[in-house]
Amino acid sequence: MIPGTFDYYRPQTVDDAVGLLSKLGEEASVLAGGHSLIPLMKTRFASPHHLVDLSGIGDLKGISVEGDDIVIGAMTTQFELIASEELERHIPIIAETSRLIADPQIRYKGTFGGNVANGDPGNDMPAVMMCLGASYSVSGPDGNRDIAARDFYQGAYFTALEHGEILTAVRIPIPAPGHGSAYEKLKRKVGDYATAAAAVVITMAGGTCTSASIGLTNVSETPLWASDAAALLVGSSLDKASVDAAVAAAEAITNPASDMRGPAEYRTKMAGIMVRRALERAKSRAKG
């Protein structure tokens, strides 16, 4: 398997990268970690004429706390997410998810931004970002703008990102102290995309659920934010009836493809099971 030919660019600043993309037009692709794009190029499902490698742009890396948010640079790798003590302290679900992505080698090179932005419904981070209510900072020829994660995904490999725009950072509101979270992923083996996966973040007070958010991975053309399902939990003690209702509501919004991971009905049911198990684990971790 051999990729087609292309010209290679390694800009040093975001402005240069944006400028290059503008100049090179539709036949240019952005290269981050490469673990989604290069396989597509090797099978010739993708044949960009120009590759703009973002790895030389130092500004795109790093994890920082800014007020009530955590800001993660797009070129921060999965490995760096897992290693970040700051992230572990404030939003542990991110590293928990990273550890379930691909394999060790790929996590060294695979970037947070690539996982978030390339629109592959199999990617894990998008559902987590929707669950957390993150927003994406993008730079383009017309300047910078922010897009809510929950508005970003429009179809398989189809997002709100316009051609020529680059995701630069992700801003994530830090969930309330004492929140409980979990990412449950069913997969056939290490390195696989999810058969179905669920991200859950909840807060509890006096045994009552005071907030809940649920994201679903790889059970539709896009990641899903199961807001109706989550709403059914708020005010409950996460008793069986409430959880059953939320699971049913989550299953209802799925629309998975049948593939080698299983037929659609199985993947829908697994989305429900993952929600149920993520809720159990999040509840056990929540304080209050």
Binding site: D103, R188, K189, V190, G191, D192, Y193, M260
Partner: peptide, 24 residues
Amino acid sequence: IRYDEQGNVMGASFMDFFLPTAVE
């Protein structure tokens, strides 16, 4: 090695073809 009804071979890569890792 599975085929669909049109005789398309399914899952002819190590993504789908089950070779267990040390974890499984």
